[in-house]
Amino acid sequence: MATAAHGGEHEATTTGLNHRKMLMWAFLGSDCMFFGSLIATYLVYKGKSKGGPQPIDVFDIPVTSVSTFVLLMSSMSMVLAYSALTRGSLKGFRIWIASTAIMGMTFLAFQVFEFNDFVNYEVHFKCEEVGTGSLTEFEESFSDRCVDGVDEVDGIHDSEGNNLTGLTPKTNLFGTTFFTLTGFHGAHVTLGVIWLLSIFFYSFRRGRVTPERHLDVDLAALYWHFVDVVWIVIFTVVYLFGVFEGF
């Protein structure tokens, strides 16, 4: 009784709570401070960029809504995997945990797609819109390209064909803070996917993933849901608020 067996959940502890689960929750509390600091940096610098694309230029809310939806549903799938395991259905568990990992990878694919899109962001507008208020500030800054005989501005490149209007981490404070915040969230998702896949493949070894050892899955699930709630905050604070000046 001196030490609990690996994965044993009914070890005698002072609080009656499992060591590993307590560590997990302490870690999640700590990770709140990690993302809190990154979000604080993002908000402190919001609207302070000098030049370069702003959130309103690059964000595509419908696309991000879809990826947000996928991540939310992966949380449901994760909890159903855990539920299936505790009810003794290893097959159900495998299906749900695999679908969770797949949805996680889908979310990551969306993020790669989005990052790529931002890096290659190009300015397009019709010259008749100049001064009408329907262009963003960033687009208006190129309005001097609308000279006689030019009806629309179609991408802005230098003499070597490099895109001059893309958003990278170097472009401005928005790029710096946005890519760092969402990038670290993406790194958390990546780690989660690796963790889930590891458990998935491990479950094919007899007796390794069982209802009695549900804690192994429980911990991965807690991590996964945490990554999900962080995204709930990012989606609202970064994306939906993105278009508001000041706040």
Binding site: M22, A26, L28, M33
Partner: peptide, 9 residues
Amino acid sequence: FFAGGLALA
């Protein structure tokens, strides 16, 4: 644990 970290953040 969680609410503490969250509130402080």
